[in-house]
Amino acid sequence: KEYCRTLFAYEGTNEDELTFKEGEIIHLISKETGEAGWWRGELNGKEGVFPDNFAVQINEL
């Protein structure tokens, strides 16, 4: 499994977007979303897309 840590808080504006606080760990599902600048991940049981410049991939939890 791949993970990323959020660098900033983000408020999702669409139903398919994740909302998160700074410093949260998102399970990274895919970097290929069909839309440049967006990754797909899962946080707190919800799957959605989020801007990749708001997070950095990490090697271990």
Rank of each mutant, 00 (worst) to 15 (best):
K1V: 07
K1T: 07
K1H: 05
K1Q: 07
K1M: 11
E2F: 07
E2A: 13
E2T: 11
E2N: 14
E2R: 09
E2K: 12
E2I: 15
Y3H: 08
Y3I: 03
Y3V: 05
Y3F: 14
Y3K: 02
Y3M: 07
Y3Q: 02
Y3W: 03
Y3R: 06
C4M: 09
C4H: 00
C4W: 08
R5V: 06
R5A: 06
R5D: 02
R5Y: 05
R5Q: 07
R5N: 04
T6I: 05
T6F: 00
T6K: 04
T6S: 12
T6Y: 03
T6A: 14
T6W: 00
L7E: 06
L7Q: 09
L7V: 12
L7T: 14
L7K: 10
F8R: 15
F8P: 06
F8Y: 11
F8V: 14
F8L: 12
F8K: 15
F8S: 13
A9P: 12
A9C: 11
A9M: 08
A9R: 11
A9E: 12
Y10I: 01
Y10M: 03
Y10T: 01
Y10P: 01
Y10N: 01
E11Q: 07
E11H: 11
E11V: 10
E11F: 11
E11K: 12
E11M: 09
G12S: 11
G12L: 01
G12Y: 02
T13E: 13
T13K: 15
T13D: 10
N14F: 07
N14Q: 14
E15R: 11
E15I: 08
E15F: 06
D16P: 02
D16G: 15
D16R: 12
D16E: 14
D16W: 10
D16S: 14
D16I: 03
E17G: 04
E17N: 02
E17V: 05
E17L: 02
E17K: 03
E17Q: 15
E17C: 10
L18S: 02
L18R: 01
L18W: 01
T19P: 06
T19D: 05
T19L: 01
F20W: 00
F20H: 04
F20A: 01
F20N: 04
K21P: 09
K21Y: 07
K21W: 05
K21C: 10
K21N: 14
E22R: 10
E22C: 07
E22L: 02
E22P: 12
G23R: 04
G23D: 14
E24T: 08
E24Q: 11
E24C: 06
E24L: 04
I25C: 05
I25R: 07
I25D: 08
I25Y: 11
I25T: 10
I25P: 01
I25A: 02
I26Q: 02
I26D: 03
I26K: 04
I26E: 02
I26Y: 00
I26A: 01
I26W: 04
H27C: 14
H27L: 12
H27A: 14
H27I: 08
H27Q: 13
H27F: 09
L28V: 14
L28F: 05
L28T: 06
I29S: 06
I29C: 04
I29D: 03
S30G: 08
S30F: 00
S30D: 10
S30N: 11
S30L: 01
S30Y: 00
K31S: 04
K31R: 14
K31M: 14
E32F: 11
E32Y: 10
E32W: 11
E32Q: 11
E32G: 09
T33R: 06
T33W: 07
G34L: 05
G34R: 09
G34E: 10
G34Y: 03
G34K: 15
E35P: 09
E35F: 10
E35K: 15
E35S: 15
A36R: 13
A36P: 15
A36W: 09
A36V: 13
G37Q: 06
G37M: 01
G37K: 07
W38E: 01
W38S: 03
W38M: 10
W38H: 07
W38Y: 13
W39T: 03
W39Y: 04
W39E: 03
R40L: 14
R40Q: 08
R40P: 01
R40Y: 10
G41K: 01
G41T: 03
G41R: 00
G41W: 00
G41Y: 00
E42P: 00
E42Y: 04
E42F: 04
E42Q: 11
E42R: 12
E42M: 13
L43E: 02
L43H: 05
L43R: 09
L43V: 08
L43Y: 08
N44P: 00
N44E: 13
N44A: 11
N44T: 05
N44M: 10
N44R: 12
G45K: 06
G45E: 06
G45Y: 01
G45W: 01
K46Q: 08
K46E: 07
K46G: 00
K46R: 14
K46P: 00
K46M: 09
K46L: 09
K46H: 15
E47F: 10
E47H: 10
E47N: 10
E47L: 09
E47P: 02
G48R: 01
G48C: 00
G48W: 00
G48P: 00
G48S: 01
V49Y: 13
V49E: 03
V49F: 12
V49L: 14
V49T: 11
F50I: 01
F50L: 03
P51Q: 11
P51T: 01
P51R: 13
P51I: 05
P51Y: 01
P51C: 00
D52E: 15
D52T: 12
D52N: 14
N53S: 14
N53A: 14
N53G: 13
N53K: 15
N53P: 07
F54K: 15
F54M: 12
F54W: 08
F54H: 14
A55T: 11
A55Q: 05
A55N: 03
A55D: 03
A55G: 08
A55C: 12
V56L: 09
V56P: 04
V56N: 07
V56F: 06
V56G: 10
V56R: 10
Q57G: 12
Q57P: 15
Q57A: 13
Q57W: 05
Q57D: 12
Q57M: 13
I58L: 13
I58N: 07
I58T: 11
N59R: 09
N59M: 06
N59D: 11
N59F: 01
E60S: 11
E60W: 09
E60Y: 10
E60N: 09
E60I: 06
L61A: 15
L61G: 13
L61Q: 15
L61H: 14
